[in-house]
């Protein structure tokens, strides 16, 4: 439907427009940044949740899973209130960490919405790896950290790749939370979904469809990577 609406020439012409190029660039930058952040946070957290028992573990795990069921729009308004109106948010802003209506806010919004997915995938990946591999590694001379780096992480590489691809493609498509926290400012916080929304609301259908087409391509490509590399999402 979307793809057949306008001819390929129009798509290519809009691709060359400054606005769409900006949106592509910003989307790539923010989604890659938020994916990296997700990896940095979710991998150690997932490892801890998979390997150790501690009091309140189920509570922690429920809180971490909450954004999964929360509408992104609601998550976005929560973030906006936190960074815009709360004490810690204001203090962060004084240090120059301004997330409200800025491109950095896009990264934060994507991170917050996507980190539970990454955590889920990594946790089930780690849970699928017997701790005995590490035990053997330790008797063979590894420290705790070496056992993780040399054995568990390489064994988890498929899960890590899967998690990164899905986090990245979800990040690129994130709209609700980004709209709330970073706003929809043309040529400033205009990611592809925001661009789709802005152009749609002022009747510039060709640009809107162009952005939509790119988003479709991203999701098709990541789905293909999944099918080809992991045989589908059902493992997680």
């Amino acid at each position: 439907m979307v793809l057949s609406r306008s001819p390929p020439e129009t798509f290519l012409a809009t691709l060359r427009s400054e606005e769409i190029q900006f949106a592509i660039g910003l989307s790539l930058k923010t989604s890659i940044a938020s994916t990296v952040l997700c990896i940095l946070v979710a991998v150690p957290a997932a490892y801890a949740l998979a390997r150790y028992d501690f009091p309140g573990k189920s509570l922690v795990s429920a809180i971490l899973d909450m954004p999964l069921s929360l509408p992104p729009l609601v998550a976005g308004i929560g973030l906006l209130l936190f960074f815009g109106a709360s004490m810690p948010g204001k203090e962060l802003a004084e240090f120059g960490l301004v997330f409200v209506f800025t491109p950095a806010g896009i990264v934060v919004a994507q991170f917050f919405v996507n980190v539970p997915f990454m955590l889920r995938i990594m946790r089930s990946t780690f849970e699928g790896i017997s701790p005995r591999y590490e035990h053997v590694a330790k008797t063979l001379g590894c420290t705790d950290a070496q056992a993780i780096l040399r054995v568990t992480l390489p064994m988890a590489s498929n899960g890590l790749l899967a998690g990164s691809v899905i986090t990245w493609s979800k990040g690129i498509g994130e709209f609700g939370a980004v709209l709330m926290l970073a706003g929809a400012t043309r040529m400033r916080t205009e990611t592809l979904p925001i661009s789709l929304f802005l152009n749609m609301s002022c009747g510039r259908l060709d640009e809107a469809i162009s952005a939509a087409t790119i988003l479709i391509l991203v999701s098709v490509v990541s789905l293909c990577v999944f099918e080809w590399r992991f045989g589908g999402l059902r493992h997680f």
Binding site: R132, H135, V136, K138, T139, C142, T143, V151, M155
Partner: peptide, 19 residues
């Protein structure tokens, strides 16, 4: 710690590093 013991262990289910 295990690495300073000079004790090695072999499990029933091999635990070969698959990578």
């Amino acid at each position: 710690v295990p690495r300073n013991r000079k004790v090695c262990m072999v499990y029933q289910d091999f635990m070969l590093f698959p990578h």
